[in-house]
Nucleic acid binder design. Sequence first.
DNA 1: GCCAACGTTGGC
DNA 2: GCCAACGTTGGC
Length: 165
Amino acid sequence: MSAPSPTNYWLMKSEPEAFSIDDLRAAGRAPWDGVRNYQARKFIRDPMKLGDLALFYHSNASPPGVVGIARVASAARPDPTALDPKHAGFDPASDPQAPRWFLVEMAFVEKLAAPVSLAALKEDPALKGMLVVQKGQRLSVQPVTAAEFARVLALGRGATASATG
DNA sequence: GCCAACGTTGGC
DNA sequence: GCCAACGTTGGC
């Protein structure tokens, strides 16, 4: 039996002061809660599938960039933090009977030996189509192509900038 | 439906 | 801390 290959690849942003790759590694897996953007919700709720792989991106970091790999470890389900008045992500308009916000659980896969900074992503011609390098793009859950994912992973595992594997 | 005001994101 | 860019809200 070979392991099923992931059907989609993603980039998921988190501020390291809120939840870092080290936090995910320590936890093993964790609910990816707090997504409050309709476009990101659509990705989480619809095309995101168990086993999909994601680039774990540190935003508001020094430097910002891809620091690890995570795997989608659950189906999408309603995000309970949207219904919790004590939670920063509380949405008073959210209806428990018709959940508005969703989460998936993410599992730790790998911390990159050589984090790939946003500047490095921008410098790589092979990655010029990535959403994260586009000006003004702030979507917290983004699709990436298999080729982009493989390229970032190669860079992050220590491949030289001139390697094209 | 338009669009100004506001709040947030996130690089720098 | 600054501020550009974006998304949402709400008056009209």
